[in-house]
Nucleic acid binder design. Structure first.
Lengths: 190, 190
DNA sequence: GAGCCAACTTGTCAACGACAAGATATGGTG
DNA sequence: CACCATATCTTGTCGTTGACAAGTTGGCTC
């Protein structure tokens, strides 16, 4: 091998294409991306992406797995350091906004291979991490389970509505500041 | 006019195309619909849809407006009859599942004309209806506002996660039964 | 330096969105 | 009834896309 896996002619086309995909999705959404446009952005021929990802779904599958992994990586230190379900929720919202492209693909199963082993494993990691955040509160059984689903729902709902531009504009530009008082209605009540 | 608006050659192509769109979106999501496929389903030529809706975004714009209108129509009687924020939330979830195609389009603004007057009006109706549901609890000011956003977030999050197949399978097949105990973590607590 | 294989390119095809231009029915007007 | 304006739909076409097939390039190994 030369330097890293998949670095021959172009340098690292695989990563370049993924980066271009993130950029393109940020501009016009996951369904509007075209493999040919990604190829143009990376300066390669129109069929180059197919070699690395097979087809469009293959590329988005990689993005989804990467997204779930990064989500787990983002939440884990927050739980370890703060032990706060509220702060974990805020971090979830910030992840959705900061990694919009990944986030939008992750929860759109019709776009990628939902059963891909890498995706399943990464999703499990993320789910376990969320469960760990709820577990810090020391509850158990059905209550903890419902609390977990409620917490996931409220943060996911806020993030989704925020990304969709559905929330009132006077909440300001910072999703973290806007979300915190909303989440407090459910968790860490005085 | 003959019978209703737009009933000349085909019968009512406009409605037939919208119905076909709902069906097609239910099968493979909003971004996978093709105007040509809708034309085939309705038994007309490939360019017929363009006459009624201009382009793809035009069709989805109609669907989005219709969706917000129907959501308001669905929630309004629930609020009037039960006065319960919990039951309103459950009705929101049921709407998302029962009108999946509409719901998925409504909250994907890149797919349609977000600023279309009919959409703006319908969305306002739906928003006002949600606000009315929160108002039944007699709160006021910033608290009521945050409670409203929290309630919207949790029901929207649960509905979105449910539709995306992200929730654990052992919740069973009925979103209403699964959602009620989750929503109760936020509203109508004993 | 021959062979091998991963990394790309070139070429092609069916499907799609969008547009233009033509055909056809319908309802209103005189 | 004759005529016409208009809404409805068709036919034809263009550029773009995803997917596939086949060929080419270049580094690595033996």
């Amino acid at each position: 091998m030369s330097k890293k896996d998949g670095a021959y002619h172009h340098g690292d086309l695989r990563r370049a294409l993924l980066a271009a995909a993130v950029e393109a999705i940020g501009e016009s959404g996951p369904s509007a991306v075209s493999l040919r446009d990604l190829a143009r952005r990376a300066g390669v021929s129109h069929a180059a992406p197919a070699h690395h990802f097979g087809d469009k779904a293959g590329l988005l599958t990689v993005l989804a797995a990467e997204g779930f992994d990064r989500l787990a990586d983002t939440l884990r230190p927050v739980i370890a350091q703060t032990g706060s379900l509220l702060e974990t929720g805020v971090a979830y919202i910030r992840f959705a906004v900061d990694h919009r492209a990944h986030f939008e693909v992750m929860f759109r199963p019709e776009l990628y291979d939902h059963d891909n082993p890498a995706v399943v494993a990464a999703r499990q990691r993320a789910t376990d991490t969320l469960a760990a955040a709820v577990a810090t509160r020391g509850e158990a059984g059905a209550d903890a389970r419902m609390d977990g689903l409620a917490a996931w729902s409220i943060v996911h709902g806020f993030a989704t509505l925020w990304l969709g531009g559905a929330l009132p504009a006077d909440l300001g530009p910072d999703p973290e500041a806007a979300g915190r008082p909303v989440l407090r209605r459910l968790v860490d009540r005085p």
